[in-house]
Amino acid sequence: MSISLSSTSPLLLRRTAAITDEEFRELRDFIYAKCGIWVDEKRKYLFENRFGKRLNELGLKNFGDYLQLLRHAPGRDREMQIVFELVTTNETSLYRDTKQLDGFKTHILLPLLAEQRKANRLEINIWSAGCSSGEEPYTLSIMLHEELGLDLKRWKIQITGCDLSPAMVAKAKSGVYSEYSFKTTPENIKRKYFTTVKDGLKVTPAVAALTSFSVLNLNDVLAVKRIPKSHVVFCRNVIIYFDDAMKKKVVGSFYENLAPGGFLVLGHSETLHKISSAFRPKFISGAVAYQKI
């Protein structure tokens, strides 16, 4: 999942009531307290436009009224789901960042499979935290199919995909994607693991069988604790949008979730520098992964 207030949003095409400095700070702080996403004051005008259309839909005159709705209205829980949709932008694809995935395969996945075989523990758990519309978990499932082949039936594999956005989780569960999602996918993989349906290409049942999807707020410590213990956590292009306090909280949760020696895989622009010293950096083909010490 990539979280941002993108200037390309269609919501920017419609202007509404201006947001005051005080309203901006109150709404920003309210959202931060709920999900840990931090919006810098330099993004105020984008924040204003992103929520402007929602105010029109609700017939509200100003952002103060919207804050009152979020705090006190009977339907505030459902409205918070819409808020999460408005503050997350999901830019992803199958086989995204192939160089990093190749490094993951060579330096993490294959040694992990060999280690599990040697210990006679034919089990792999991977957590995709911020899975967006599901492309990353399905990519990981396909990679395991490719590596294990017919031997896959002997293994117990679970790829857990979680995202803040209910709409993205619903799309992930459907497993149907347009051509845009395949822009970096090898043609042979596309033919082998997807079938043509009315709305695009649908992942095969065998690939879907290794995955599960649910809505999860990484700021919810108790919910995070219910994620199965993982050998690998993928959290690419998510924590860069958190402040340092939230980064430390989330990375601490990943550390607790990981099995001894497990790996945390972040996006290229993300680092644990000054965030955590509980991991050992491991260079994987031009990228860095972090191993639990």
Rank of each mutant, 00 (worst) to 15 (best):
residue 235 C to W: 04
residue 105 K to D: 13
residue 36 G to V: 00
residue 128 S to Y: 03
residue 103 G to L: 08
residue 253 S to C: 11
residue 40 D to L: 00
residue 58 L to Y: 07
residue 235 C to P: 03
residue 259 A to V: 14
residue 273 H to T: 14
residue 179 E to N: 13
residue 146 E to V: 05
residue 74 P to I: 10
residue 201 L to V: 00
residue 81 Q to T: 09
residue 20 T to W: 03
residue 190 K to W: 13
residue 45 Y to R: 12
residue 260 P to H: 12
residue 65 D to I: 03
residue 158 Q to W: 13
residue 49 N to L: 10
residue 272 L to A: 11
residue 112 L to E: 08
residue 160 T to M: 12
residue 96 R to D: 05
residue 117 R to F: 10
residue 264 L to R: 06
residue 220 D to F: 01
residue 123 E to I: 03
residue 48 E to Q: 15
residue 42 K to I: 13
residue 3 I to T: 08
residue 190 K to V: 06
residue 142 I to C: 09
residue 63 F to M: 06
residue 34 K to M: 04
residue 208 A to C: 05
residue 195 T to P: 01
residue 158 Q to P: 00
residue 151 D to H: 14
residue 233 V to Y: 11
residue 218 L to M: 05
residue 131 C to G: 05
residue 104 F to I: 04
residue 261 G to K: 14
residue 119 A to H: 09
residue 290 Y to G: 04
residue 207 V to T: 07
residue 154 R to F: 14
residue 264 L to C: 04
residue 96 R to V: 05
residue 136 E to N: 09
residue 104 F to D: 12
residue 127 W to F: 06
residue 286 G to H: 08
residue 54 R to T: 10
residue 55 L to K: 09
residue 279 F to I: 12
residue 10 P to W: 06
residue 231 H to V: 05
residue 139 T to K: 08
residue 132 S to Q: 01
residue 179 E to F: 06
residue 60 L to M: 12
residue 162 C to Y: 03
residue 86 L to P: 04
residue 285 S to N: 14
residue 277 S to L: 13
residue 78 R to G: 06
residue 82 I to R: 12
residue 164 L to T: 05
residue 222 L to G: 00
residue 266 L to S: 07
residue 241 Y to Q: 00
residue 113 L to R: 12
residue 161 G to N: 08
residue 134 G to H: 11
residue 168 M to D: 02
residue 234 F to N: 05
residue 105 K to F: 08
residue 15 R to D: 11
residue 179 E to I: 10
residue 21 D to I: 04
residue 168 M to A: 15
residue 98 T to A: 15
residue 99 K to Q: 15
residue 252 G to I: 02
residue 149 G to C: 07
residue 279 F to A: 07
residue 242 F to H: 00
residue 45 Y to P: 01
